[in-house]
Design a protein around this nucleic acid. Structure first.
Lengths: 174, 174
DNA sequence: GTCTATAATTTGATAGAC
DNA sequence: GTCTATCAAATTATAGAC
């Protein structure tokens, strides 16, 4: 893994725990064994790092999901696949969704970072709309915003109350 | 309004836009016309201010809701009253729920602040459980976590995408 | 690519006068 | 309650050497 990738990974962990202000160039540098001035070689400004972080996070997230139609074709429920990706982030990583946290502080982010967070949610809504369509939901657009809202909210509350059973209860279909 | 109340109000606006790290004693002091050293007279540390802020926010929130049974008795749907309180925060204030934002950064908050955010959600879940019970929901506890998760998530996404129609779509019952 | 050195600013907090 | 003065630390960022 390159130093640049190491920096992004270290930053992701910190942002997912405390938001955009929860990492500094000095801390990241220290964690990967270089100096803070060297971080500026890879990322001119903190906003550049934040934007690239959110961009890569979005790409990895979408790549991990696959395509709704293909999932459906292989006998899987794409909405359950989507839910499972959130569950993994909460249970395995024990961290918030990067863009869920950045989205909450959206108003105070540098423009280029906020744009990447918007990209995350636009792509997620698009994916979920296709997924609900494949499931023959009568209103795929509404089901999409409901799904992502519920998951982001349940994740945040489960983390806050330090009890994943809230996430399970919220995502349990009766 | 006392200086202390003015400070809390100024802090609330800043936290609801960018989280716990989005306010400083100097900024707050400047906004209410005193010096930062004087802020320490009212709140010994930043964590003290944050905790008191979340505590008052929770109390105001619950007071604005009223009691589920009384709402029901007066012909109102308590869940709609609850939804309307969130809608007002988003549409009128154009800001996130204070504890929704603080909850997302929960892992990086001082203990006494995190405890107050937990208190907010525990009380909200209790209130919603009673509300859904009054509505004869078969599983009030599940309906409660679903309701607050959906609202917090839809609020966050609507703010991120700067489009309140997502909140309306998510809260619309088909 | 990484370093040393450093600048400019902000931050939370304290001491002590009034 | 509020002030002046001040501190120690942290932060983003840059210049220039290697």
């Amino acid at each position: 893994m390159s130093k640049k990738e190491e920096l992004l990974k270290a930053a992701q962990d910190k942002v997912r725990l405390g938001g955009y202000s929860n990492f500094s160039f000095r801390e990241l540098a220290s964690e990967v064994g270089i100096k803070s001035a060297s971080v500026h070689y890879h990322f001119p400004t903190k906003a550049d790092l934040g934007a690239e972080l959110a961009h890569h996070y979005t790409n990895s997230f979408l790549a991990a999901l696959g395509e709704p139609d293909e999932l459906k074709a292989s006998g899987k429920n794409p909405i359950e696949v989507y839910t499972q990706l959130f569950r993994g982030a909460l249970v395995t990583d024990k961290k918030m969704c990067l863009c869920g946290l950045l989205g909450a502080e959206s108003d105070s982010l540098p423009d280029k970072v906020r744009l990447e967070v918007q990209r995350f949610f636009n792509h997620n809504l698009q994916w979920l709309k296709a997924a609900h369509l494949a499931n023959d939901e009568p209103n795929p657009a509404q089901a999409a915003i409901k799904t992502v809202s519920l998951l982001e909210g349940a994740m945040m509350i489960s983390k806050t109350l330090d009890d994943n059973s809230y996430f399970e209860l919220a995502t349990q279909t009766v």
